[in-house]
């Protein structure tokens, strides 16, 4: 799974920018094309790119399977708890209780921003875990 020195260096230098682009997609989901799932897949793809160029063992030391699994569970539980918070504050499930700003601003989505962030974290962790599982399976049960 190793690659040449050129690819490893370039991927290492590009990695923060790919994650930044993914975070931009997540946070501007209600203003431009993007959203939780799309940004999460971009961040997950960045981790997969690291795994393809540097080898799966070194990537797994940095992004451990257990930590990603915990992030995934926390992401989905945050989503459900935000829904329950909305019920406790009197609106219906997943209803909006934050004030709406002007259209075009990043604060204009209300609760959508937090949903997008929770789903983005969850999808990024999920895609990485799927990749780890498919790569590391070597015939043992």
């Amino acid at each position: 799974m190793g690659s040449s020195k050129i690819i490893r260096t370039i991927v290492q230098k590009l990695f923060p920018f790919i994650v930044l682009f993914g975070l931009y997609l997540i946070s501007h989901g209600h203003l431009s094309p993007g959203g939780g799932f799309q940004g999460g897949v971009v961040i997950g793809t960045a981790i997969i790119l690291l795994a393809l160029s540097h080898g799966i063992e070194k990537t797994e030391k940095k992004f451990e399977n257990k930590r990603l699994s915990m992030l995934e569970k926390l992401g989905i539980l945050t989503f459900i708890f935000l829904g329950f918070l909305s019920i406790f504050l009197g609106h219906s499930f997943l209803g909006n209780f934050l004030p709406l700003g002007k259209p075009g601003q990043i604060t204009s989505g209300g609760l959508m921003l937090f949903f997008n962030i929770a789903i983005g974290i969850e999808v990024a962790a999920g895609v990485s875990i799927i990749f780890y599982a498919l790569v590391k399976y070597r015939g043992e049960i």
């Binding site: 569970k73 539980l77 459900i80 829904g83 019920i87 219906s92």
Partner: peptide
């Protein structure tokens, strides 16, 4: 709370499923 019963019927097993992954 009585108004929210239909969504609580769906969410209650879902929440328990994800809480089960933690413990």
């Amino acid at each position: 709370m009585a108004i929210h019963i239909p969504i609580l019927i769906i969410i209650s097993p879902l929440l328990a499923a994800f809480l089960m992954l933690l413990s």
